[in-house]
């Protein structure tokens, strides 16, 4: 079943919230393979299930039906402890709100996942990441002394340093101005191209999605589109077309 190309896989994944009359299906049979060494964006309007899909892929949320694999590990039936170990060893996260610890310096924040896992950093690799994110002069600063863009680059470095099988980025530019946002997106793109890092990014911003190698569109808990190497215009066209389709469905 497992493909050597897949960093993560979802097979016929269903996720239902509530029960009975108030039952809402956030994911309705989603099947998706995240290829290794590629930058995948998941797009969709709010309520489309894109964040739920990411959380399920990352082992943060349990699914109701189907299968989820991260690398060769099946998430079904894993205990909290096993899921934590999986996240610790194989998964990286970049959050919309950066989620840095204000008590630690930039460098300490970058090293936090390795420290938690009790692993010592590969010095050369660490230096390379720090230079890539361009934060060398800021390493001793605390998050409150950094700009939003800088904070998000610290968060990126934090996700990159342990070399996880896959990094999940949840609206990484959602709290940034367009210039800082572009910097962070370029950084993510670079990590995929140069380091072969697998990244999955959830976004509702077509411009952000255009940095990805592949864009998957979600609506009403189903995959409704899948583009490879799109530019911003194609992404926007697709969104418009999907909107029109769903309007037509509702009208019908």
């Amino acid at each position: 079943m497992s493909s050597p190309e897949a960093a993560a896989r979802a097979v016929d994944v269903w996720k239902v919230y509530g029960s009975g009359e108030t039952e809402v299906a956030a994911l309705r049979g989603v099947t998706l393979t995240i290829e290794r060494g590629r930058f995948t964006a998941i797009m969709g309007p709010s309520g489309s299930g894109k964040s739920t899909l990411m959380h399920c892929l990352a082992g943060l949320d349990a699914i109701d039906k189907g299968e989820v694999h991260v690398g060769d590990a099946a998430l079904a039936g894993m205990s909290d402890k096993q899921l934590t170990a999986l996240r610790r060893d194989r998964v990286g996260f970049i959050f919309q709100q950066f989620n840095l610890l204000p008590t630690l310096t930039a460098e300490e924040n970058i090293l936090l996942p390795l420290n938690i896992a009790g692993r010592s950093p590969d010095r050369d690799w660490l230096d390379r990441i720090i230079d890539t994110v361009g934060l060398r002069p800021r390493l001793g600063h605390r998050p409150t002394e950094l700009s939003g863009g800088q904070q998000q680059r610290v968060a990126c470095a934090r996700a990159l340093v342990p070399r996880p099988q896959v990094i999940f980025a949840d609206e990484p530019t959602g709290n940034l101005d367009s210039q800082s946002g572009a910097g962070v997106l370029a950084l993510l793109q670079q990590s995929v191209r140069e380091f072969g890092q697998t990244i999955v990014m959830v976004t509702h911003d077509a411009r952000a999605a255009s940095y990805a190698d592949r864009v998957v569109f979600l609506a009403d808990g189903r995959i409704v589109g899948d583009l490879t190497d799109p530019d911003e215009g194609v992404v926007l066209d697709t969104i418009r077309k999907l909107d029109a389709d769903s309007a037509a469905v509702e009208a019908a």
């Binding site: 990352a58 934590t84 170990a85 996240r87 610790r88 990286g92 959050f95 610890l101 896992a117």
Partner: peptide, 16 residues
């Protein structure tokens, strides 16, 4: 709470 969530997400065990 947000910090605790992040720590748990990046692999901190409950006992930790």
């Amino acid at each position: 709470v947000g910090e605790l969530g992040m720590l748990r997400a990046v692999g901190m065990y409950r006992r930790e």
